Simulated scan of single mutants.
Amino acid sequence: MALKVYDLQCDHGHVFEGWFGSEDNYETQRARGLLSCPVCDSTNVQRKLSAPRLNVSHLRAEAQAPAPQGASRQAANAVAAPGGAQLAKLQAEVLRHIRGIIRNTENVGDRFAQEARRMHEGEVAERAIRGTATPSEQEALAQEGIAIMPIPAFLDDDRLQ
């Protein structure tokens, strides 16, 4: 049986692959709400337009540059590329892990800059926090040597609601 591989996208913009026995199988699963995004679990999933898969590996082999001097061709070209389904699974797992880390932080809200400074100066015990900071607060923290990292809204459950 030949499988149909479709590029799918959820309403949050996450793109992933779905493998189906037929067009009808895809439509039935979508209509019953059985399809879900591996990143955010949204069941609002649509099929994207996708180009047909073409076997052009022979063209890539012809275009490869020679290996750097002293390196074997095999070592110079060693890479890893998981298949589409593997990549979607890996992406989903990484994002679930990141969301878990974020969920296990204390949300200090707009007191973020103040709390980050207090921890940096040893006034309070270090702990994982998240919150909001203005651009000028973020710049001041960076100048003080306090490392911070923006969290995209789609990873923060508090901002998704």
Rank of each mutant, 00 (worst) to 15 (best):
M1H: 07
A2H: 11
L3S: 12
Y6P: 04
H12Y: 04
G13L: 04
F16M: 04
G18F: 04
W19A: 13
F20C: 04
S22E: 07
E23S: 14
N25R: 11
Y26K: 08
A31I: 00
R32Q: 03
G33S: 05
G33Y: 00
L35H: 01
P38Y: 06
D41G: 12
L54I: 13
N55H: 13
N55T: 13
V56D: 12
S57M: 14
A61C: 07
Q64D: 11
Q69L: 12
A71M: 15
A71N: 06
A71R: 15
S72T: 12
A75T: 05
N77G: 11
V79R: 15
V79W: 07
G83M: 02
A85P: 04
A85W: 08
A85M: 07
A85R: 09
A88D: 05
L90E: 09
E93V: 13
R96T: 08
I98D: 01
I98A: 07
R99D: 10
R99T: 13
N104F: 01
N104R: 15
D110M: 07
D110W: 01
D110A: 13
D110Y: 03
Q114E: 11
A116I: 03
R117P: 00
R117A: 00
M119H: 00
A128Q: 13
A133W: 01
P135N: 05
E139I: 03
L141G: 06
L141A: 09
E144N: 12
G145M: 01
A147Y: 08
I148G: 03
I148A: 04
P150W: 05
P150R: 07
A153E: 02
L155K: 00
D156T: 00
D158Q: 10
R159F: 03
L160W: 10
L160I: 13
Q161R: 15
Q161S: 14
